[in-house]
Design a protein around this nucleic acid. Structure first.
Lengths: 223, 223
DNA sequence: TCAAAAGTGTTTGATCTACACCCATGA
DNA sequence: TCATGGGTGTAGATCAAACACTTTTGA
């Protein structure tokens, strides 16, 4: 048989999971409890199984760690260097996910030694995970200003200040408030509600939401 | 052992190979001589081997088909659906390559049933190759206007008309000649030589070249 | 009454777009 | 001499960036 002359490989998925914790962009990292790289920090990974697609495997790994379903996820790329895993030859597919401020299953996180780490405080990681994270951050920044994905990190209703702070955090530079609001006003799929958030200021701020129905892939979205 | 509880998979690389043939953007496709999908058109693929990285595998496959080395290649993404290959479970990594007008090994191409097909005349392809090609074209267009990769399709020395035609072909819309030349003039790494090409017109056109030394990742490159 | 965040327009410079004619040459 | 592709500048529109003050309200 044509196929069987060829070798087979373990195929892993590694999930680079973003979330906002106390306003800071964080990664969910785990301190490994198993060899190889035991004791080192790494992103959460798992192996693709027979009856699941790579995308399904990534969703499963994310679900096992957080208990969450229907989370925004996307493939970053494959990492296929021969020695990227010191234990065995493993080809890995990196995925990134963005979590909103839902309640996590804290027990699951603890069970996996998982903690939120701000992206400017990332400890040395095992395997080729530093590369994966760099690559993912680049992708994240590029997508962030051209596609409406930031909302995955926010609650359903959010203030413009929250949104602006998020963009400043991700893009790494301050944004002029008036220019920012001018742009937001031109984006159809970000709509004002008549609710007011009084927790963030004495005066109160209007709450907005992302309206998926008003978003088509051809709508302008440029922040 | 931790790893061995998990299944292993065939891992393929599929090469989406671009070239300019008579001024048209073409893909190098092969008519399959083996099952599965025998008789159907597909892009050129091969299996990753034990002692080679995924990138090396892609380079090897390209070399086996064209005889060429040191060709511009880049990973597109992984395709991991369970049934993407009707014969066996195969996870595939798509790569794209851009060939200049070098001499190909015609015998090798013939041996693989490979022909150049203009991208607007692509026949129905087997497997999930239509998806791969679409995905790659998107990536190509995005990279084309922000990174100096188009030169890989051109000879070392080229005229501005050739360059403009190339951009019009890839981006799919006509470009104003004066505006195009204005932009090119502002790009440091495209330099004029004192050579003249007399083959394309009676008057003759200055030949330009891409100067890699003058290109840094921070240089502006926006066409 | 004051601290703290929300909200609001205008001006300036930069960039992009549209547009038409002369040039040099070989056939 | 003329057909063919090579080469050149300007004006108007659009977009991006800089900039400061008033409003509301709970403590």
């Amino acid at each position: 048989m044509y196929y069987s002359e060829n070798p087979r490989f373990f195929v892993a998925v590694d999930c680079i999971i973003f979330g906002l914790v106390e306003g800071k962009l964080c990664l969910l990292l785990t301190k490994r409890k198993f060899e190889p790289e035991k004791g080192k920090w790494s992103v959460m990974g798992g192996f693709v199984q027979e009856m699941e697609s790579a995308d399904d495997a990534a969703r499963r790994v994310l679900n096992q760690l957080t208990g969450l379903q229907d989370v925004y996820m996307e493939q970053v790329r494959a990492f296929g260097d021969v020695d990227r895993d010191p234990g065995e030859r493993v080809i890995s597919l990196a995925y990134f996910a963005m979590l909103g401020p839902e309640e996590f299953d804290v027990d699951l996180l603890a069970e996996h030694n998982a903690v939120w780490v701000p992206i400017d405080e990332i400890p040395p990681l095992g395997f080729d995970h530093p590369q994966m994270v760099q690559c993912t951050l680049q992708l994240l920044r590029r997508k962030f200003s051209t596609e409406p994905i930031g909302f995955n990190l926010l609650p359903e209703y959010f203030t413009l200040s929250q949104l602006q702070t998020l963009y400043e955090t991700i893009l790494g530079s301050p944004i002029d408030k008036r220019n920012f609001r001018k742009k937001v006003a031109e984006i159809d799929c970000i709509t004002k509600t008549d609710m007011i958030d009084k927790t963030g200021s004495r005066r109160g701020a209007s709450l907005y939401r992302f309206d998926l129905a008003k978003f088509s892939s051809e709508s302008k979205f440029k922040i």
